[in-house]
Amino acid sequence: MPWLFIAPITLLHLVVVVAPSIGGMYYALTDWSGIGKADFIGLENFRTLFFDDGNFRLAIRHNVLWLAFFLTVPFIMALAVATLLAQTRRGSMAIRTAFFVPYVLPSVVVASIWRMLLDPRLGFGTLLENWGIEGFAHPYLGDKNTALGAIAFADNWHWWGFLMILFLTAMQNIPADLYDAAKIDGANRWQEFLNVTLPGIRSTVFFMLMMTAIWSFLVFDYVWILTHGGPAGSSEMLATYLYKQAFQRFEAGYGAAIGITMSAIAGIMATIFVLLRRRGWDV
């Protein structure tokens, strides 16, 4: 009976994702160009990938930086703002709505907004200069030192509000008597946050941390629309690199090897979280 409820969606997954992925995985062991015959070459693709491919190492580095950014910045913003919002009443509904609106925009729209805003000559830097604030006009997406950060910034602009709403909703489910009890114990706001709020929304935070860890290794949209991984590979991600190998260079076998590596890394992330959960954290 329980499995009867689970079976339909599982079957769908088997067809849409699992079976084709197994096909894709086989190609990682071949020199397949994307069509025609594929010669079995064993682990050669992986050898090249791990030992000879500087662009691949660079991409992994960028994914790790991305992970570090998204495990911290949006979470801190979302937690702080949810806490502030939970205390307010007047206008709180309107403010929540405002924070959530960027999440509603399609990614192509978000990306084009930020492409305009980050433009060196015509973007927000120039606007600030017109108001007398100098020093912000910079080719953020064209500078190899800022491109990755600029993309993460744009992505986060659209993302953190959603996270905040999830946290706020979770906070509202914390029984009020816990706060009353904390107050009786003489807790200040910070202690209240640490001892009541955070434990109360722990499972939501934990879940979103886990999803972030997994998604960080799959990111494609924003990078592709904003920079295609450039300039000079400074925002190249595993997914954009996979795409380029498979569809622009016709190295589908090599691309599949990159894909499997991505999955493996994301899988390790997921396993860490599952193990933590076994150790008594609840998800």
Binding site: S21, G24, L242, G255, S263
Partner: peptide
Amino acid sequence: LSTLPFWLYVIP
């Protein structure tokens, strides 16, 4: 499953 990148299985 959710760790499998779209570009890995799109051709099959």
